[in-house]
Simulated assay, not measured.
Amino acid sequence: MADDMIIVCPGQGAQAVGMGKLWTETSAEARAVFDEADAVLADSLGAPLSQICFDGPAETLNRTDVSQPALYTAAIACWRGLSAQLGLAEGEAPIVAAAGLSLGEYSALHIAESFSFADGLKLVALRGQAMQAAAEATASSMVALVGADEDKAQAVCDEARADGILVCANFNAPGQVVLSGDVDACKRAETVAADQGVRAVALQVAGAFHSPIMQPAADALAKALANVEIAPPSVPVWSNVTAKPHADDADSI
Rank of each mutant, 00 (worst) to 15 (best):
G20C: 04
A134Y: 07
T73R: 00
G197A: 03
R161Y: 03
S239H: 10
D119R: 02
R161M: 09
V8N: 03
Q68P: 09
L166V: 09
W23D: 02
L71G: 03
D35H: 08
V17A: 05
V192H: 02
I95F: 13
V201H: 11
A47C: 02
S102A: 09
V192F: 03
A118Y: 00
V192N: 01
T242D: 12
A243N: 15
V228P: 04
A139N: 12
A135Q: 02
A206F: 05
C9G: 05
R199S: 14
I111W: 09
M214N: 06
R63F: 04
M131N: 03
D65F: 08
D65G: 01
Q129A: 15
E229R: 13
F115E: 03
R199E: 13
A153L: 11
N172W: 11
G104D: 04
Q176I: 10
F171E: 10
A247M: 13
S67E: 05
F209A: 07
F171L: 14
T138I: 15
A70E: 01
D43S: 13
G175R: 08
R127E: 06
E29H: 12
C53K: 00
G120I: 02
G120S: 07
G46L: 06
A133E: 14
D55G: 02
V17R: 01
T24N: 01
Y106E: 01
Q132F: 07
V235F: 12
A118F: 01
A98M: 09
A189E: 10
D151V: 13
A217Y: 05
H110N: 14
S140V: 07
Q51G: 09
N240M: 07
S114P: 10
P57I: 02
D55C: 04
Q176Y: 08
G91W: 12
L203G: 08
D219A: 15
A217K: 02
A108Y: 04
W79N: 01
S44R: 15
Q12E: 06
D38M: 01
G207I: 04
D195L: 08
P236C: 10
